[in-house]
Write a protein that binds this DNA or RNA. Structure first.
Lengths: 198, 198
DNA sequence: GTCTATAATACGATAGAC
DNA sequence: GTCTATCGTATTATAGAC
């Protein structure tokens, strides 16, 4: 496969991925994608056999990027508490787009989950990726309880914060919540028991 | 306006409201609505001038039902802790539909929030209705801090639980989280300080 | 007020020239 | 491999008979 083809394909995936986030999957049309990617209309069908196929590629793209990001954190930060705080930093770090479009993983899963499609299974893996990583970090931090359960709880919290930040357009709420989360992680690192942790 | 008209209109609103929840707003077509409501195709335009108009009516319908529910709780239960625990009981009480379709308020707001429509403002009011009620109850429970902030935090938590219950189809997670929430409310009622509350 | 037929449009997808 | 023209379908919405 020649180099130019590969780059065209990549441009389509990235444009589609962004539009799926901004507008939602079903509300994004082929016209939107080709316009954003700057490729001619029917050309898409050389690279993808259907719209679902583009979504699959977009999810794979997200998986790669998230996987790389998590691995990068593991390499860049020495202690689990630094890594977990970096993880929490996602929220304030993308507060503007969270306000406008919600969480990219959450809104995609919410949309796809309405039908019982196989696509939602792929989208779910985005959450599992984070959950696996976070559970490992919590265990390494010295958390003695079920790390996977606490990881899912923390991700759920982040989801709830994302949803309400989006619903109310309230950035201050997000920052407030993250401060509470950080305090909780400090408590956890200090070995203190807590209703939310214990 | 004759009585039969009113009932027909109501049938349309209720059918549409259910479909908007199960399929999402944009994925629900007029054909779906008229089939479910059992009214002839074009008849809908006598009652509603557009699809958005049906959604407005559906949101009003939800507002009425939620408002009535909350008022009913205030009348049925004597103490704020009983009312708040009844509020938490929404989650296990609708665990099956949460697993399949997510939270009706959350998924609607997530969908409408992608565009900056006035419809999302109406949908947002569903959250505010709960938040106002819960803030009052928390204050009546004797919570000395900013009750509105804690109310939003609790609703965010419920949203996060709903999203992840939907994503993973994990009912056990939901039940686990609700038990933690109940413990937290007990702590709050006992006047204990807590990272999540303080 | 009630209902049918149909307009007008946007969509995902295909055929086939180059 | 690249691009244009267009198909078939589903959508929201309207016109107008009854």
């Amino acid at each position: 496969m020649p180099r130019k083809s590969e780059r065209t394909r990549q441009r389509i995936v990235e444009a589609a991925n962004q539009l799926f986030y901004y507008k939602g999957y079903h509300r994004t049309s082929f016209s939107d994608v080709v316009a954003a990617a700057g490729v001619p209309r029917g050309n898409i069908y050389y690279y993808f056999k259907s719209k679902d196929d583009i979504l699959k590629a977009a999810i794979d793209y997200r998986m790669d990027r998230i996987g790389g990001m998590l691995q990068g954190w593991t390499e860049s930060y020495r202690t689990p508490i630094e890594r977990i705080k970096r993880f929490l930093g996602i929220l304030p770090g993308s507060v503007d787009s969270l306000r406008r479009y919600g969480c990219p993983m959450g809104s995609l899963n919410t949309e796809l989950g309405k039908e019982q499609s196989e696509l939602q299974c792929k989208a779910r893996a985005l959450f599992t990726l984070f959950e696996d990583w976070l559970a490992d970090e919590l265990a390494e931090l010295g958390y003695a309880g079920p790390a996977r359960e606490l990881a899912r709880r923390m991700i759920a919290w982040g989801q709830g914060v994302s949803v309400l930040t989006h619903v109310h357009g309230d950035a201050e709420f997000l920052h407030r919540e993250v401060r509470v989360m950080e305090r909780l992680i400090d408590k956890l690192a200090a070995g203190e028991d807590d209703c939310l942790i214990g």
